[in-house]
Write a protein that binds this DNA or RNA. Structure first.
Lengths: 129, 129
DNA sequence: GGCATTACGCACCAATCGGTGCATGTCACC
DNA sequence: GGTGACATGCACCGATTGGTGCGTAATGCC
């Protein structure tokens, strides 16, 4: 869908490449995987453990997407128990250092505000409902 | 600074607050609506026109989510043809000024890189598949 | 009263997303 | 040759997302 969009994108919203970027965050676990990898290269198993609560299949899909976007790379060692390490590429690193850090900072600064707003909105809704 | 980033991410992964933040970008149109509203208050109709290609229902849902998250506010005028204006709250403005701008900057700086990576990944896949 | 405009709700649908469970291939080790 | 750790693949499923179309309430205007 994003493919088809891209043609009209420029017409629709001035800054539509923004959408290409936000798509990188569109999947639940992708940012979490990236954040985890920002701590250093990790193996699949380590990722699962570090993240917790992510299913095996979904992790695989997330890794594939990140690979396809050139945000991470995959290094398979020819060892006894297969060993594969994932690490951020420079592109991935730049995404983490820039936008994700900004998001992290924003969250630490405005997280409470966000939660307050969400709660008060929920309260308003239940009061009026 | 890198340490600070690591700390943030580590905490956020652990706390999942990062997900609370990325969820704000999880829906296709929410960031687009936000970006459009960053240009100034807009009415529903204007939003639809400015964005283009968004369905009526989905716009409504996006607005509801943004309202529920306290990122925008709604001002209904008691006029002849109903008139409702949506505008960014200070929280929404801070999100736009911070993370979204960072994302826009990243996109302008690394957009080509991202596209290259995507294309070469697609090529690799089709070559090997 | 009937019409047009505007905001918005609702029912129905296809596609997608994330989750669970099971199967496969590799290679050290027994 | 069988077993176990590890990285993946695949089939199946329920919930969610976005899209389409239609209905409705409010109100100025003819």
């Amino acid at each position: 869908m994003a493919d088809k969009m891209s043609d009209h994108c420029y017409e629709l919203v001035a800054d539509c490449r923004l959408r290409a970027a936000t798509d990188l965050f569109a999947h639940t676990w992708d940012p979490v995987v990236l954040a985890t990898l920002s701590l250093g290269p990790r193996r699949r198993r380590e990722l699962r453990a570090a993240i917790g609560g992510i299913s095996d299949k979904v992790l695989t899909e997330a890794l594939h997407r990140l690979l396809a976007n050139g945000l991470i790379n995959r290094h398979a060692h020819a060892e006894a128990p297969p060993r594969v390490e994932y690490a951020l590429t420079s592109l991935g690193q730049s995404l983490v250092d820039g936008p994700m850090r900004a998001l992290a900072v924003w969250t630490t600064e405005h997280g409470d505000e966000l939660l307050d707003a969400q709660e008060s909105a929920a309260r308003t809704r239940s009061t009026h409902g």
